[in-house]
Amino acid sequence: MLLLIAGTMAVLLVRNLFVATMLLGIVSFTMALIFISLDAVDVAFTEAAVGAGISTVLYIGTLALVGSQEKDQPKFAAGPMVICIAVGAVLYYATYEMPPFGHADNPVQTHVGPRYIQDSPTEIGVPNMVTSVLASYRGYDTFGEVTVIFAAGIGVLLILRQRRRRKNEDDETDVPLDKGKTGRSGSLSGLGSEHDLIPHVIAKLLIPFIFVFALYVQFHGDFGPGGGFQAGVIFAAGIILYALVFSLDLARSVINEKVILFLISAGVLLYGGVGVASMLLGGNFLDYNVLSSDPVAGQHLGILLVELGVGITVTAAMLAIFYAFVGRADLIAAKAEQEKN
């Protein structure tokens, strides 16, 4: 806990953005550990994969494009400080009448929660209660969540989409993007170095396992921690690793932007399609009971399908975002090259 506070203070104070990003990753990871101690294994899993994984990749990708040194800024901002202290004080004031931490007779534990804990194993038949609440009781929230990811993917594509396609794959060389500031060299799709044997061999060994693990997480989410979202992130991570080690163009030849756009949409449609199917069968939207003659089997089928939808959309959206960032780097590199000639 104290480590967390120290970490966040350091994020605030450190001036190198690269270091700040790493610290953010550490904070996320520490947070994930704390979540485990608070019994939230699913959340911990996700936080580790997202907070410490994907978001760090995104930050680093951005830093490579924009430079990593913050302007000198020792100034102390009084206004924001006052606001923060006010916000903190209100919350601190509120804590004194909060129900004590961890008591079993708090309203949170007594009102709505028990139903999920007591009845979900019989109503849904899935041991992981988080999955049953996520995909069934509050399945519509999860549908919204998939839509949020979909919206983010669409938004990033809208904002970053290349205006024109690269002329020729061969043209692609490492053009310094902004050497003075970043000290790194440009085109991210050149990142996969062709000569390093060790990463290639290790990646070749690892990547199949990553995919298998992702599939395990996807389909075992009913029983242990995991589910479509985590699986999607892991799957995307596998492909991103492949892209980083073997060059982006190879990854693109395996799964290109058009396919990705199709997949993002397909995931949302699959999820919604399950809902519509249950409507057509006479239930309410996302009422899985009607999907099969036996309600519990129907729930199983419904959860399996919507989790698959989540997994597909998340994988595709993460890849779309990654490709968009990398594509932008290529565009800048190409521009710089044009200006040189």
Binding site: V108, Q109, Y116, V130, D141
Partner: peptide
């Protein structure tokens, strides 16, 4: 309680 976990996943 699983409910807050679900909310936070979202």
């Amino acid at each position: 309680n699983p409910l807050p976990h679900v909310l936070i996943l979202t």
